[in-house]
Design a protein around this nucleic acid. Structure first.
Lengths: 244, 244
DNA sequence: TCTCCCATACTTGCATACTAGTCTACGACC
DNA sequence: GGTCGTAGACTAGTATGCAAGTATGGGAGA
């Protein structure tokens, strides 16, 4: 395979390269630590270095690669701290989103129900890729319900860090069935226009990732950034605001 | 002036161009609607199109410019909705930050006090630029106190939208003195390790911008995105969580 | 055999060249 | 005089070329 097809969504080549690389990194087809080069990737996709370079810059901003000037670009290792920071930001923004959605009383009940139905189907079929996409859509639906679609752009960037962990965790115990159930709880609370319960459900959902993280770091030490001190970094309980 | 100096902070040219353009846009030296071209800006800075292009991409991601393929790049108008969305994200993340800082009990009291002192000095001297920098540093100090320096990167991006408004509002009534006082209230609450009060103070501080916004939009209609319906978009009270 | 040095083959950062699309203004035609 | 068509001068997107820095491996010397 000298030239790999490229057209998930079309549009500018640079954007296509971003999507393709991001997907490859999240699904571990490009493994942490692996060296990439603008030239090589350009050749693989049959394009020039320019769009690849722009893609590298974008991916480095979301923390999926590290550009080392004059030395190369490597896939960033999964960092416990980075994942935790991403969770922190998502918790802050997404709890605010479900609060606002609950307050706005304009919930897209059908869309949420439909999405949840397809989530269940994907979970039953053990179709991880489909479930991933539906998960993203679910969270975006909530943001749109709150009238904060633009805030979701922030989430999208930050999410990249968590997606690799989620991918690793997929076959495990904390798998799709439980996530569907958590999504359902969020949807029920939002539909019931109960901001506090919705925020609590969202917080619980996003904290789930912290459960699987230590075990995954132990199981795949080669994929993770070396943890300097203890294997389980400073225990930091999920921030509870007075509403929970 | 054929070639403008370029070296605020040094480093890669692209980063320098980002800083220079960002500053020019925030201070309205490049006004909303103004057409830029990679070629022209490159010539003005005495560099090639490549770093300028990368700068445009970065600035378009934070919403300060809009790239129109094959047509040009223009300075984005100030958008009421974008400013409000930025405030929303900042409120969500920064209230979480001060909560966490308060809970961590490792407050850099001296640094905060020192910063506040310099803020007062800048306010007395009516030195807007200095005050701007100190404001940013204040918020970064809080993020670092919470151990969430990386979360501040998100804030930094989102802040761009609000900075132009803040710049416009600077000579006005809601000026530096009041902001210093608000910062002081936040610092006092954090120092007192009172998460609820700190979050409430932060929320009040960030809501301040909503006060000046309608008047500024009226005073400078040429700088703002055309507001379709009513002049004052859908009144949306600051999201209050159950803690306030 | 071990160590040091240097040639070489990489890398990204930046500059330049080419492609393709959009707007505009001028001129021909009606 | 008015309108339509077209040529040219822009634009950003992409490709390629050049410069500067880094890692590496092999050979020379001890």
């Amino acid at each position: 395979m000298s030239v790999v097809a490229l057209d998930p969504g079309g549009g500018p080549i640079a954007a296509q390269v971003v999507r393709a690389l991001r997907h490859a990194i999240v699904t571990m087809r490009l493994r942490p630590g692996e060296m990439l080069s603008e030239q090589e990737i350009a050749g693989r996709f049959g394009v020039s270095r320019s769009p690849v370079r722009e893609a590298f810059i974008k991916l480095s901003e979301v923390g999926l690669v590290r550009v080392l000037p004059q030395r190369g670009t490597r896939v960033a290792p999964i960092s416990y701290a980075a994942v935790e920071d991403a969770r922190f930001v998502r918790e802050a923004v997404e709890t605010a989103i479900v609060r606002e959605a609950s307050a706005r009383r304009a919930i897209p009940r059908e869309a949420l129900a439909d999405n949840l139905g397809r989530q269940r189907a994907a979970a039953r079929a053990r179709d991880g890729a489909a479930f991933f996409a539906l998960d993203e859509e679910f969270h975006r639906l909530l943001a749109e319900a709150a009238g904060r679609a633009s805030a979701f752009k922030v989430i999208e960037d930050v999410k990249a860090q968590m997606d690799r962990v989620r991918y690793l965790a997929m076959p495990g115990a904390t798998s799709m069935g439980m996530l569907v159930e958590q999504h359902g709880a969020i949807a029920r609370a939002v539909t019931a226009l109960d901001p506090d319960r919705a925020a609590a459900a969202m917080r619980a959902h996003l904290s789930e990732i912290l459960q699987s993280l230590p075990a995954l770091a132990l199981a795949h030490p080669d994929l993770f950034e070396a943890v300097p001190a203890g294997l389980v970094p400073t225990e930091r309980p999920a921030l509870e605001d007075a509403t929970s």
